[in-house]
Design a protein around this nucleic acid. Structure first.
Lengths: 149, 149
DNA sequence: CGGTATTGTTAGCAAAAGTAATGAGTTCTG
DNA sequence: CAGAACTCATTACTTTTGCTAACAATACCG
C-alpha cells in the first residue's frame, strides 16, 4: 500500500478536517476558473442543480440549502430568471413567498452544463481507476451530508 | 446496497463531475462561513498549511501550488507577514526571488487552526463511520491530485 | 554590454457573498 | 378587530477575493 504525504496528516479527525478544507478550497477555485467561458456562475449552477434535484422551492429554502444568505439567493434567482432558466410564481397560500422552478430551458441548461463540465473534469476522471471514481462518488454523498448537518 | 438520490446522477463521469462541483462549492462556502470568528481567510489558511506541509518556498511556487495567480499570492503572503505568521527572506542566489517560510507563531497558528476547525467539523465527522471517514481521506488525496493535473 | 526573460509587486477592476435596513404580507393578541 | 410583532424577499452598501495589465528589479544570453 502506497503511503502518500497526505495520509500522514489525516489520522485524526482534526487532521482530516484541515486537509479536506484546503483541498476543497483549492478544487472550488479550480472549478470556478474552469467555467470561464461558461455563462453561469458557480452559484447559479448550484441553484439550478438543486432545483433539478429537488423540484420547486422558495428562495429562502434554496438559500438555506445552498448555505448562502437570502440576499445572495435573490440575486442568483434574479439572474436565472432574466435568462429564462427559472420561473417565479406566487405561493398559493402566502403572498410573501414565491416558488422558484426550472423552465424547460433551465432543464436543458442543466443537461448542457453536465456536458460542459465534462470537458475538463472527465479528462481528469478518465485517468482515475474505477475504484477511485467510486471513492469520489461516495465521498460526494458524504460531503453533501456534511453540509446539511 | 442503499440507493441514495445522489447516486442516480453519478453513474457517468459527467454526472459525477456535476455533483462533485456543486458539493465542493457548497462545502467550500460552508467552510468559509465557519471561520468567521477566525482571523484567517481560506486562502491564507491554505498557504500556511502548504508551507507547513512542504517547507519554505517562493511566492511563485506557492501560487502555482495553490492554483492562484501570483498577485493573489502576493496579497496573501503580505497579510500573513503583517501578522507575523510568515517571514520573507531573499533567495541566496537570485535577488529577484524570495523565500517564504513559517515563523514559530505561524506554526502555532497551523496547530490552532486545526483545533478550531475541529470544533465544528469533528462534530460532523463524529457521526460518520470509520469507513466513511476513510472514504473522505482517500477522496481528499484524489481531489488533491485532480487539482494538480 | 544591450536586449530579453523572469520574478514579484502595484493598480485597477469584477464577481460573489455578507450585513443592515426596508417593504409587503401574515399572524398573533389584547 | 386593530395594531403589534413577525416573516419573507428585496434593496443598498460593504467586504472579500480573485483576475488582468502594467511596472520595477534582477538575471541571463547573444
Amino acid at each position: 500500500m502506497k503511503k502518500s504525504p497526505l495520509s500522514q496528516q489525516t489520522r485524526t479527525d482534526a487532521g482530516l478536517a484541515s486537509v479536506l478544507s484546503v483541498t476543497v478550497g483549492r478544487l472550488a477555485r479550480r472549478l470556478r476558473a474552469q467555467r470561464l467561458d461558461a455563462s453561469l456562475s458557480l452559484g447559479q449552477n448550484a441553484a439550478l442543480f438543486t432545483l433539478a434535484r429537488h423540484g420547486e422551492m422558495t428562495p429562502g429554502e434554496l438559500a438555506e440549502h445552498e448555505k448562502v444568505q437570502p440576499p445572495s439567493m435573490t440575486r442568483i434567482v434574479a439572474a436565472l430568471e432574466e435568462r429564462g432558466l427559472v420561473r417565479r410564481t406566487r405561493h398559493p397560500e402566502d403572498q410573501r413567498r414565491q416558488l422558484v422552478d426550472l423552465t424547460e430551458e433551465g432543464r436543458e441548461m442543466v443537461r448542457a452544463d453536465r456536458r460542459r463540465r465534462q470537458a475538463w473534469m472527465a479528462q481528469r476522471l478518465k485517468e482515475l481507476t474505477p475504484q477511485e471514481k467510486d471513492t469520489l462518488r461516495r465521498a460526494a454523498e458524504i460531503m453533501d451530508r456534511l453540509t446539511q448537518a
